[in-house]
Design a binder for these strands. Structure first.
Lengths: 229, 229
DNA sequence: GATAAACTGTAACGTTAGTTACAATTCACG
DNA sequence: CGTGAATTGTAACTAACGTTACAGTTTATC
């Protein structure tokens, strides 16, 4: 059982974008040093402000990440899926964690503490380079999001976010998002009503098809045109 | 002359937050391997999408960083001052740069290419850890900005941004920002008019004093209260 | 299959920021 | 000093989103 999970963890690490350019031994070391943790839906993987150091790699499940704005307002930032990394790894503490991560489904995390990272780094110092890489990727997404919110109006922003959530699944079929309009609004800082209005308009124009907790993107290029103004 | 600049570069690196926990030899190596570049106001240090790798450390001057949203809309993200780092350093290219950096003043940059970084890393592999650290710091700022934009209304956002720009200069005197209302608006995604309305209100309430291209923060705790709703 | 929970559709109203345009002020540079 | 550029002040109008509330629909759970 535990063994199965270890094998799964190894597979996830090997396929993760931030590790794919590094030797397999690195993924092996991480699984060997880290601890697998099972969490139920609703449980917190980590809280913003935690001072525990180290990383948590999502092996299975789905988490939602939140960030706190001034005035104790939480805003949902993004999802963490298998392969995503939570937490940080700066030297000497380096300050509190950035986000709160809550399990949306039962999930499995691989937790690697600061000292365990040090052990891995002893034989594979390039681990820090890999960590810099995924942090940079997170930075890219955060900046993109910031630029979108600042320069796009809700209608365009909704189109842009739909495309971002769909990701690069350039499969042959139309991408289908399983997400409520309420959550969509939370993700982009508008109310459900606003989301609803624009989704209805998109559906009228044949760009998407909506259902109960479900959005099918039918015309990706049309959505891109809207996102681009 | 060049020697003076090298000494300056060394000082800046030694004082930079992301290097302060590392031995001085690391800063020395970076200065030795890198090249000092002088740029005039208006010149681009790097463009978003550039595929050159490597880092640029701001040694002197001031740059504005911009990010592009869908539809070729540029939004100003932040400033880069001495000690800031531009660029990225992921393995195997790792994709285009995130931001466009434009000199607001004549500036001096220390450019360190990917291969030069590799040379430094040969003797000091911990350089990657330092790079991960400042990338994480940038991520922190970007997420904070995202959370602010999503959850705060312009009035509160303006207060929050004023405090962020003032930074941690918790000197005895009131912080003074030298920035136009136009630029402020660009920084937080609202129009100059909106900035103007709220700044006027703040001034009426004695929180700030405005002048030509100048804002003095008189009541930091009052501004914090507004930022917190 | 029945009941509750979650999600979506819709509406009236008020607020607020964007748009556009122009005038007044301050500064920089010669 | 004096001219032009940059910055700030102001205004009327429009459009859009937020707020609040409730009804209708789909799914989940037992």
């Amino acid at each position: 059982m535990n063994n199965n999970e270890q094998i799964l963890a190894l597979e996830v690490l090997q396929k993760a974008a931030w590790l794919e350019d590094y030797p397999v031994t690195l993924a092996n070391s991480l699984v060997r040093e880290g601890r697998l943790v099972r969490l139920n839906a609703g449980e917190w993987a980590q809280a913003e402000g935690d001072n525990r150091n180290g990383l948590s790699v999502v092996i299975d499940g789905l988490l939602h990440t939140y960030c706190t704005a001034p005035g104790d307002r939480d805003v949902m930032i993004w999802f963490a899926e298998p392969g995503s990394v939570l937490g940080h790894a700066t030297r000497h503490g380096g300050g509190p964690r950035l986000v709160t991560a809550v399990c949306a489904e039962p999930s499995i995390l691989l937790e690697i503490s600061e000292s365990e990272l040090d052990k891995v780094a002893k034989h594979s110092p390039e681990i820090w380079r890999a960590i810099a890489a995924f942090t940079y990727e997170d930075l890219r997404n955060a900046l993109r999001m910031t630029a979108e919110i600042m320069s796009l109006r809700p209608r365009e922003r909704i189109a842009a976010r739909l495309l971002a959530i769909a990701g690069d699944d350039q499969a042959d079929k139309n991408p289908v998002l399983r997400i409520s309009q309420e959550l969509l609004g939370e993700l982009m800082g508008v109310t459900r009503k606003t989301v609803n209005i624009h989704l209805s308009a998109f559906e009228r124009d044949g760009l998407i098809r909506t259902g109960y907790g479900r959005i099918e993107l039918c015309d990706l290029s049309g959505l891109k045109m809207i996102a681009n103004g």
